[in-house]
Amino acid sequence: MSALAHIGGSTSGSAPAAQPTPTKRGKVAYLLLLPGVLWLIVFFVVPLVQLFTVSLQSKFPGYPGYYYRDVNFGNYLTAVVDYWPHFARSLLYAGLATLLAFILAYPLAYAMAFKAGKWRGVMMICVIAPFFTSFILRTIAWRQILSDDGWIASALNALHLLPGGHITETWVAVVAGLTYNFLPFMVLPIYASLERADPKIIEAGGDLYANGLTTFRTVTLPMSMPGVLAGTLLTFIPAAGDYVNAELLGSDISTKMVGNGIESQFFRVVDGYPTAAALSFTLMAAILALVFLYVRKYGTEELL
């Protein structure tokens, strides 16, 4: 029977027997690594360690602004007890903003990858270009857009759809600002992973399932998963640590996030250093834990 298998010859190309990825061993690698790794150790690892020791320091009684080396976990207790609403808001707002950014980003990335044709380049510029107007200026512009006498708030008020009468000074404005600011970080990775996907596979999916939504759920979305993963992390992490949106768009107290707490403990509270450091570490631990769970659930190795 094997004879018949060869009628006409096989048409599949044969891969080379050996994988020719050129990896080299030796000292050159360490020379290439040295400057960058050194920079990251001196200006990333060491400062983090230092910040950690600060988070354990105690105040010098009677000398405001002075601390001594200690192993005082009380700072963490203060951080959690005094600031748990801030933490909750940070994670909640960042989570909401990430979800909204995903909903807005996916159609845009999809259109860029599959529908835009020659307009692809133009759309790409449109996504990146707003970066160059300062992020602070754009956030202030949102304050103007959402302000009470702006057209959005006026329209909603006219329809009696705005219970408090304001958008600014509410969590809605903060989440809107976060969504807006980190949207490009969601669009670009999703676009990159969709662009790599073969549209023929999606067409084949369309043939198999006929239903557009099923095709999307079973073929398109899984193919773009590495991009979605990278995009959600690049949106969620900076959003959770942000304080500018809460500062410029939110209210005085009820919409403050952890970032605001860290910032004010650092700059405005005498003796705030250890608490600020403890807040920073708690935030980082919370984010890393969430990221770890998230990557474990949906992850691929492509992230690293």
Binding site: F44, L48, I237, P238, G241, I262, S280, F281, I287
Partner: peptide, 10 residues
């Protein structure tokens, strides 16, 4: 994966 505020503070 580190929030900017933590980088800045450290």
């Amino acid at each position: 994966a580190t929030p900017e505020i933590v980088l800045g503070a450290s």
